[in-house]
Design a protein around this nucleic acid. Structure first.
Length: 178
DNA sequence: GCGACAG
DNA sequence: ATCTTGTCGC
């Protein structure tokens, strides 16, 4: 799982600053790293964090909270990418993943706002499966750093006005691929 | 041994 | 993640 130094491989990350809840974009930053670690389930932070931190360091505008495309506490070791970025930057962070990595959960209702707890084998709550748009598959929200799960879910829902994915993540995803 | 497995 | 085909909604 160590560095795949395939010539010229670049890790690319993007971050956007939005005004909440209007989602007015205030700033956009992208950053690249010369080598990237391979993707290994459970170790995504090693692949994504360096570039993400580099992009964050280029911001000149203050932020209130980071919405991260990945898990927070909903991780085998309770420490996904959102937790790493939160601890590293000191900023409040929220993990918001498109699919499940760890934990059991039943399907939430089909109406936006429905949610079901994501739990581990002992019943400990790791996060929530949240329906962010009517009839769409849920997103997996979990605590990253300095936010409660309830706050995290409300913020994610508020960021999904007419789409399944939170506006900040859609913008950052688009920017990283441009 | 077999299935699961963020992006 | 990436690629491809087909369907649905604004």
């Amino acid at each position: 799982m160590w560095p795949t130094r395939t010539g010229g491989a670049r890790a690319r990350a993007a971050v956007v600053v939005c005004r909440w809840p209007e989602m007015e974009v205030l700033e956009e930053r992208v950053a690249e790293e010369p080598v990237r670690f391979p993707y290994v389930p459970g170790l995504l932070s090693f692949r994504e964090a360096p570039a993400a931190l580099a992009a964050l360091s280029k911001l000149s505008h203050p932020i209130d909270c980071l919405l991260v495309d990945g898990q927070g506490r909903a991780h085998p070791r309770r420490f996904g990418l959102a937790c790493h970025l939160g601890l590293w930057t000191g900023q409040p962070t929220i993990g918001c993943a498109k699919s499940r990595l760890y934990g059991r959960v039943s399907s939430p209702g089909p109406e936006k706002g429905s949610r079901e707890p994501l739990v581990d084998a002992n019943g400990e709550v790791l996060g929530s499966a949240v329906t962010t748009r009517d009839r769409c598959k849920p997103l997996y929200v979990s605590v990253g750093h300095r936010v409660s799960l309830e706050e995290a879910v409300e913020i994610v829902l508020a960021c999904c006005r007419r789409t399944k994915h939170p506006e900040p993540l859609r913008l950052a995803d688009r920017l990283s691929k441009a």
